[in-house]
Design a protein around this nucleic acid. Sequence first.
DNA 1: ATAATAGAGGATAAAAAACTCTTTTATTAT
DNA 2: ATAATAAAAGAGTTTTTTATCCTCTATTAT
Lengths: 144, 144
Amino acid sequence: MFSKTCEYALRAMLFVGQKSKGGKRTGIREIAEGIDSPEYFIAKILQELSRKNLIQSLKGPAGGFYLDKKGMECTLADIVSAIDGDKIFSGCGLGLKECSEKKPCPIHSEFKKIRKEMHDMLQASTLNEFDEKLERKLTFLKRV
Amino acid sequence: MFSKTCEYALRAMLFVGQKSKGGKRTGIREIAEGIDSPEYFIAKILQELSRKNLIQSLKGPAGGFYLDKKGMECTLADIVSAIDGDKIFSGCGLGLKECSEKKPCPIHSEFKKIRKEMHDMLQASTLNEFDEKLERKLTFLKRV
DNA sequence: ATAATAGAGGATAAAAAACTCTTTTATTAT
DNA sequence: ATAATAAAAGAGTTTTTTATCCTCTATTAT
């Protein structure tokens, strides 16, 4: 569905969101451990997200990644778009470059519906709202 | 969403389905041209589908690929499963190896719903039903 | 039987994605 | 100012996916 890179990105953002209360910051190592991802790889991904202003960061001692109030309003759709692009939200299910109402592929309308639901769902989900469930350990970001 | 390989596979199966009336067969070259895919690559993919009995083939002059009556009842879900496996139907949206009702990722239930719709849609679509629209040029398998 | 055709199978190559390492730069505490 | 810390940046490497080529085998028509 999403690329592996994107899966890591989503998990990392959820993780940092959860850890960002009270102006706290989280380092790469803690993030990698917290979401069970390769350390250097998630570092690269967060760099990219930082460049795109989806996450904030600070260098130096007591530095790390964090999300401010505005940052916590980031939606899952924003993250997916930033990493995987919009293909999943608008591309043709059969991979046709040209696929539209006028020249639809055989499953155009069915796919459109599913893609829309996916987009709506991700768009409606801001990082904010996952906090509580993560805190109460009702949901998880890694096995065990 | 699907791998490129899978997209080619779906298009090829739809194409062969459309061409299989009256016991006719279609050669690799015609298929590659008809769905705008690399010739040698789609050959490989059809080999795989043939091994898994999703498509029939015959060597020699006037040989080629075809679908018998039973073959035309193949669903799009069958094709996706054969090529991409079931990850898209059952895998976790955030890529967690363990993600279940008991230990759900933050978007577990939302994803479950979408994946189910996707599966239902693909499962409900047999190759049969696309014939007429393709024939009447209401849907397409390549640009132009 | 023979030649021509067309898929099967194995090997290889190119491109993209996933992942790692090293150096540089910014920040903080002493 | 200096040392320590932690992210940024750049340059790799490895693995997976996508794509190509070549030889072999089955089938058909002559």
